[in-house]
Design a protein around this nucleic acid. Structure first.
Lengths: 207, 207
DNA sequence: GCCGTTATTGACAACCCAGTACAGAACCAT
DNA sequence: ATGGTTCTGTACTGGGTTGTCAATAACGGC
């Protein structure tokens, strides 16, 4: 009946996300997005309603990927919960893990949580971005807290510890490594931070 | 001999810092800086060499304030070291503390570490900003590590723990709360994160 | 094969921005 | 007072930005 789209929507949004990640929101022009995605200006406006629309929809796509991967990586039987937490922490510290085995990104600066980066840059004046970013955080917090509870059931974490508090703390550390990574610190340093954090998790009092 | 400056250099840089904090680097125009500082374009260029110069010098001023306050807040006798660490952590979580008793900022978003915010936004493509930000981090890391060592000498922290690792971890948490704060979480939640982190510090094995 | 419908493209206009140039003002030494 | 020097504000320019528009291309039902 009518001419079909010549591009894959998710693919375009992902390319735009990479661009926003690399240059920030205010640092990327519509022409940059156009070059990164291969789409002309007109198509961008027709399909996504301009720069801000691209951002919102790219963040929604990011949120969807996050909500799909994180629970999968953290859920499972109680026996392996602590080890899953350990593995997730170690990977997250080198960039938000969004796929099973692919390392998140070549350079650390481009691997920081997309939602966090946008929230820090424009969240103060863009409540929609702020809300979307918070949603991303909530999904992760829920998944991590559930994993902590599993580890508690298995006797690997102090049952008196509040699993939600612990989840918030762990995610705060992960987000903190985004910043420390942006300073230029080595992956080894970030791994060391993650290991230190993991070692401090409260173990059961009496064995 | 010649006409003297009609403005206070540090005062101007501080106003510019506030503006950069509120809108980001790419989000503030020279006119914004002009309005925030009360200086005309000409003066800005003559005194600070344009927008980028203003940023660099504002960051240098921030670094200086940081290097002056943090060691003062953390240094002292071994007996009080753990408590100083506690107090610093609790305050830092609500914004980088730069003065003795003034609370850092009214809203949390504007209180995030200036250096960290700039490093995340443009550090990937501006090595000078990246270096300055890292300097800020190093000053804090040194001061915190020294305080950890003092607490270890006093028997309040496990002497087997690596004080540098611990300092990095604590600062990572503090930087992480900048991000979590930007999501819009309440001060109470941030305090809770800080208390959780403090509670997990490794205490001496046998009392 | 034609036609309605939708995507795509490139160009265009209005606007904003960084940086510069110039003219005037303020100060101090003499 | 006056002149030399430096600060201050404003107007200007070249470049880049965003959002829109009209013309063109592609597809599928008929």
């Amino acid at each position: 009946m009518a001419r079909p789209r010549s591009f894959d929507r998710d693919h375009v949004l992902h390319a735009a996300e990479r661009q926003f990640r690399a240059s920030g929101y205010n640092g990327t022009s519509v022409d940059d997005i156009s070059a990164a995605t291969g789409l002309g200006r007109g198509s961008l406006y027709a399909a996504f309603d301009g720069k801000h629309g691209v951002l919102l929809q790219a963040m929604a796509g990011y949120f969807a990927r996050l909500g799909q991967f994180a629970p999968k990586a953290l859920a499972g039987p109680d026996e392996g919960a602590l080890e899953r937490l350990h593995a997730y922490l170690l990977r997250a510290v080198h960039g938000v893990p969004l796929a099973a085995d692919v390392p998140p990104a070549p350079d650390r600066a481009a691997a920081a949580c997309f939602a966090a980066k946008m929230a820090l840059e424009i969240g103060a004046s863009d409540s929609e971005v702020k809300r979307l970013a918070n949603d991303c955080f909530s999904v992760l917090a829920t998944a991590v807290a559930e994993c902590v509870r599993a580890a508690q059931r298995n006797g690997d974490i102090d049952p008196d510890a509040d699993p939600d508090d612990l989840a918030y703390l762990l995610l705060t550390i992960i987000r903190g490594t985004d910043v420390v990574g942006a300073y230029g610190h080595s992956p080894a340093r970030l791994t060391s931070i993650a290991e230190s954090a993991f070692a401090l998790l409260p173990r059961p009092r009496h064995r």
